[in-house]
């Protein structure tokens, strides 16, 4: 059983996540573990560094979907932002938005790790 308070601090809405999992907390927690192993963020980062905006788009889009489904709310918000900017082709604003995403992403993964104990 994970510490919900820790998760909450990182913007992870545990109850909602479990609900989304059909009230299956075991499933939700498994998904959170998988989130830790997920490589989409690394891929997004590389894409940004390479200015490969297509790659950046598909990666952050994935992150958006994942985080939305798992009620990892801050990551969801920040990744949605990046996606919107990419759609609008507002490339200059991206680095800043991405920094926010990175921040939220880090907090979330840290929280999950420590919540696992």
């Amino acid at each position: 059983m994970l510490d919900r308070e820790i998760l909450k601090g990182a913007g992870i809405d545990y109850e909602d996540g479990v609900r989304r999992c059909g009230d299956n907390s075991g499933l939700y927690e498994r998904l959170l573990s998988l989130f830790l192993a997920d490589d989409n963020f690394e891929g997004a980062k590389k894409g940004l560094a390479d200015k490969d905006y297509d790659e950046l788009f598909s990666r952050t889009h994935e992150i958006k979907g994942m985080s939305g489904n798992m009620s990892i709310t801050d990551v969801y918000r920040t990744s949605s932002n990046v996606v919107a900017l990419l759609r609008a082709k507002d490339y200059d604003a991206i680095p800043a938005a991405f920094a926010e995403l990175e921040d939220a992403y880090g907090k979330a993964t840290d929280a999950i790790e420590s919540a696992q104990g």
Binding site: C21, L34, M70
Partner: peptide, 10 residues
């Protein structure tokens, strides 16, 4: 993988 796990799960 997460999506698949999720969907299988539910």
């Amino acid at each position: 993988l997460i999506n698949r796990t999720y969907l299988s799960g539910i």
